[in-house]
Computed example of a mutant assay.
Amino acid sequence: MNLRVDTVVPVAGRRPVTVQLFHLRMHDLARREFSLRRYCRDSGREVCNSKRAYGQPSPVSRPGIQRSVTTAIHSLKMPFRRSSIGAASLHHKRPSTGSSSAASSSWDTASIRSMRMRTDSWSSDRPPPPASTLVPTNSIKLEFSNYARVDITRHDGRNSTRYEFEWWGHTYAWKRVYDENLQTASYHLIRDGRGLPVAHITPETRSPNQIEADEWAGGWVPPCHMWISDHSIVDAVTDVADVLVATGLIALVDDCIKDRWHVKKPRGRTHRALSGDFDVANPRSLMRGIFHRRHSEQRSGSPLRPDRSVVAC
């Protein structure tokens, strides 16, 4: 739950000294509640803190069977309503005096008002609908000590994954590149969607014994090298370098969390017990495999019931 950022400083006449630059304290992994501090964990100089963004769930349309039942009930109610011919005959039987028509119209208005009042009172007596629960999003909010705020959003594509954010009129994206041979992921920061990367995060080369020792110790974030290749960012008067370091660490940790705990379920298991492979998750494939087996047994014959008879001596 702690991630440290160190650098090696050469000293004249002595061995290089390792200096700690940043410390990322992870309080809650699910909510992405992190705290990035400068120099060490006890210094109290917080650079920024992060938390996951939550939003309203997407509206789900009613299923088709519910719509069909509603339509059927509505069609059953139609024959019990008064037809236009019956209403016209009743209207002609009424007296044509103005007083009776006014009385009937006033009675209809009063009845409609009473019905409206009853409907409103019944609707007000009902309990309010329950508030919808918030669902987590792919965005993480970073709040810096200088009251600046940065929203970093994860975008999953077919071939690549990006963590995008904006800072002072520029759009940045940490692009994830996966090496299938080494089975490692590196991250490169692209500014404004073009040009060479301005920052990099690459994993260290480790032996199988080192990987096993790190996993046994509980480490789930691989040790990486991080550097900024654009000298204009390092020499800038603003704190853009701190923003790039903070967003890079958040992107690295978030991707490691998804890669370790958010494992996709297999689509289906393939069984070879029957003749022909079929997918259990697909009912059509399952039935096709069963019928194909029966058809093949009828053609080839069962081993217990041979087609030709054998004469016993």
Rank of each mutant, 00 (worst) to 15 (best):
V19K: 13
S302M: 01
R191I: 10
D230A: 02
L189F: 09
V5G: 00
R272P: 06
Q210N: 03
L90I: 05
P129F: 05
S309L: 14
R206Y: 08
G289A: 07
R67W: 04
N209F: 05
G86N: 03
R52H: 09
I250P: 06
H188W: 14
V177M: 11
R284K: 13
H188R: 14
D254M: 03
S114D: 13
R293T: 08
A12N: 09
V237K: 07
T238Y: 03
H225I: 09
V234G: 01
I152W: 00
W167D: 07
S43D: 14
M117Y: 12
A199S: 15
V237T: 06
L244R: 00
L142F: 02
Y39H: 14
L274T: 04
W174V: 00
V5Q: 03
S123N: 15
R14F: 13
I140M: 03
I190H: 11
K141N: 07
M117L: 15
R32G: 11
K175T: 01
H92D: 05
E46W: 00
V243Q: 01
E204T: 10
D255K: 01
S229I: 02
R194K: 14
T270C: 05
P283H: 02
S275V: 09
T137P: 06
D214I: 01
M287A: 13
D279F: 05
V221Y: 02
C48Q: 04
R31H: 10
P208D: 04
W261Q: 12
H170F: 03
R118Q: 14
P59R: 07
A53Y: 07
P129G: 07
G44Y: 08
S111W: 07
C40R: 15
R294Y: 11
A246I: 00
V9I: 03
R32A: 15
S124C: 08
A246Y: 00
A102G: 00
D255Y: 02
S309F: 11
R299G: 02
I112V: 09
S300G: 05
H23M: 07
R284M: 11
H295W: 05
H271L: 13
S75F: 05
R94S: 04
H188C: 09
G86P: 01
L249R: 00
S50Y: 01
P59N: 05
S50Q: 02
D235H: 12
R294A: 12
E212Q: 11
R14P: 02
P16E: 03
T7L: 06
E166V: 02
A88S: 12
V263S: 11
D120N: 13
L134G: 02
A87E: 10
M226L: 11
H292G: 15
T18Q: 08
V198T: 15
L134N: 06
R158G: 11
A30C: 08
T205A: 13
H74Y: 03
R116P: 04
S296T: 02
P128C: 02
R31C: 09
G218P: 07
D28G: 10
